[in-house]
Amino acid sequence: MQSAARKAKLYKASLNLAVNIVRWAFFGLIAFVVIYPLFTEIVTVFMTKEDTYNMAVRYIPRNFTLKNFADAWDSLEMEKTYPMTILHALVVTLLNVASCTLVGYGLARFKFALNKPLTLLCVLGLVLPPDLLQIPLFNFFRNFNLFGLIPLLNHGEPLNFIDTMVPNIVLAAVAAGFRCGLYILIMRQFFNGMPKEMEEAAAIDACGPIGTFFRVMLPGAKTMMITIGLFSFVWIWTDCDFNYNFMRQANILPVLLRDFNGTTADATIVDQTSLSLQAYAGILFLVVPLLILYLFTQRYFVESVERSGLVG
């Protein structure tokens, strides 16, 4: 009797192991496909220039060095650039999450005349080629006059917001920034799936629509808000449309990387090899913070959230 139980246990364990091996093989394959295109770059960044000329050195650097990082760091003035880039991405992300959650909730839960048109505009905003947006929005923020009000206060001059964070912040606050339509749609669909009973229960307990949103709906929406926050952070961090248009001279990472030329010991000689090595370091400067961020946020996709509060 006991041995039968042990056999069943062993069978289950070995089946589990087999399934896990299939999973590991599958994700190993995916890891290969994802990392392989940049594998050479990632290992080469730790090499000295001599190593790159040495035919015997392929993947493992013979003279391990961090000089390429140091050079790229100096060239990009990372001690100033990182705080600026992080601040920019963080502010935009927080505003995006706040505005898109509100709008998504409004579209999901209330019937009013503008509901369908606004949903259509969300999709339209996503479909628009970014190039079409550039010129009108650039003009809007270049000569910002707010229906002629600003020139009255500012000696007849409109304000120029180009090369500041203002355009991206304003657009994020009104849920019209980069890919905001997607965040709104995600939140709309999420709140659409929430049980109606929760709202009714809140209403019976004399909770108004605003109270219902903040006290009943928001706690359950945490995972979804973190999801759109993550998307928003990654996209504003690596965005080349809005950032290049509005912040063409600003000290933020994607803009600086566009004009990246590295530092060379001898300024007269364009040293392609060190430039390449420093460009690899630049890639890691861009990628690593996002990976760290993801490692922190992915915890929230692991905890199952009890969202409904209803049983059965």
């Binding site: 503008l114 606004l118 505009l121 628009l128 849920a175 019209a176 905001c180």
Partner: peptide, 18 residues
């Protein structure tokens, strides 16, 4: 009416951005 309140940011935003 609360629907307008919640979607107010995007009513402005869609006019400007779309």
């Amino acid at each position: 009416l609360y629907g307008y309140l919640f979607t107010a940011p995007f009513i402005v935003g869609s006019l400007l951005g779309v």
